[in-house]
């Protein structure tokens, strides 16, 4: 079960993690606990895989080039195709979705040439065409993900 401290640490510092020499001390001061309590609670959350990291979210396409890709994969080939796709280090967020286009992933590459090389590689290895849907405009201001942590039943499924 998550403590009140865990919940505060999950929800309250997604946007403005302190930029100071002792950020965890600053958080401790805000919450009225000790720095050690904050550090050990974050280590627990990390170990339990409730947090992915404490780090930056980068605006897409400032560094390198990214695109969303969709593929129509025959159902019985989906797992095999997904693992071929995952094999490319440029791939992240690879999901099955309920649609004729049933495999969706994001590619991040250094530049257009690199991106097209990866796409050609994926199409070659899977024998399936891709649909490229690059980001044209971002309307969302990312303020993090506010969790409602009441009546929580946690998942045991971990994405690998």
């Amino acid at each position: 079960m998550l403590s009140i401290l865990h919940k505060q640490l999950l929800n309250n510092f997604q946007q403005e993690f302190p930029l100071s020499p002792r950020p965890f001390q600053d958080i401790a001061n805000i919450l009225g606990v000790s720095e050690d309590e904050v550090l050990s609670a974050y280590r627990e959350l990390d170990k339990l895989q409730f947090i992915s990291r404490i780090g930056p979210v980068i605006q897409p396409n400032y560094i390198g080039l990214s695109t969303l890709i969709a593929m129509q994969v025959p159902g019985e080939q989906l797992s095999a195709v997904a693992s071929i796709v995952n094999h490319f280090p440029e791939v992240n967020h690879n999901y099955e979705r309920e649609h004729l286009f049933n495999l969706w992933f994001v590619l991040i590459a250094d530049d257009e040439h690199h991106l097209q090389t990866v796409i050609t590689g994926i199409e070659g290895k899977t024998g399936i065409k891709t649909m490229q849907l690059p980001l044209l405009e971002d309307y969302f201001i990312n303020l993090g993900f506010q969790l409602d942590l009441e009546d929580n039943h946690q998942s045991e499924s971990v994405c690998t």
Binding site: F13, F17, L48, S52, G55, V57, I141, F145, L147, S155
Partner: peptide, 24 residues
Amino acid sequence: LSRLKQQGLIKRLGVIVKHRRLGY
């Protein structure tokens, strides 16, 4: 890091949760 946030290259700096693990 402060400047990169201010410039918008870093959209946010903070805790990134695993929402699937947390019930979403």
